[in-house]
Amino acid sequence: MSDVLSAPHVMEFPYTRSTGPVVGAFLTGLRDQKVLAYHSSDGTVVCPPPEYDAHTVAPVEAAKLIEVASEGVVTSWSWNPAPRDGNPFDRPFAWALVKLDGADTSMLHALDAERGAIETGMRVRIRWAAERVGFINDIACFEPAGG
């Protein structure tokens, strides 16, 4: 049998996506260091905001989004010991679900903290990116808020 060749191969798609009015408003808020949420018809505050109300299925109006805090509590987390290309950090970090003060649901983002210091229920706050462009990475990560 002959030697079989192999070679590195890279495939890349530079997608541009339309955000729609609600996600667009959310990302615009992040650029201004504001976190927007949706006050749902059942009374819960959903963050990030959905495009449709989960109960009435009515379209969410971007103008009616409300602001929640940039601090919150970790509701769940998972340690990432081996970051990959495209991850927020090139060193081990945690993925965390964070319920921001004023919201009833949690959002997923990176948490920059020592592994031993992380626990469900800990207080964290947003570390904003120095340059914000209207993207989820305008939140650089969450970090321990102390107290």
């Binding site: 060749l5 070679a7 798609f13 530079p14 996506r17 615009t28």
Partner: peptide, 23 residues
């Protein structure tokens, strides 16, 4: 207001063409 975002997708892998195409 933000109306669009770029979300590039990139895949890096090793490609092998098999025995006949290698020859």
């Amino acid at each position: 207001p933000v109306t669009g975002i770029t979300t590039p997708i990139r895949m890096e892998y090793r490609y092998t063409p098999g025995r006949t195409t290698s020859d």
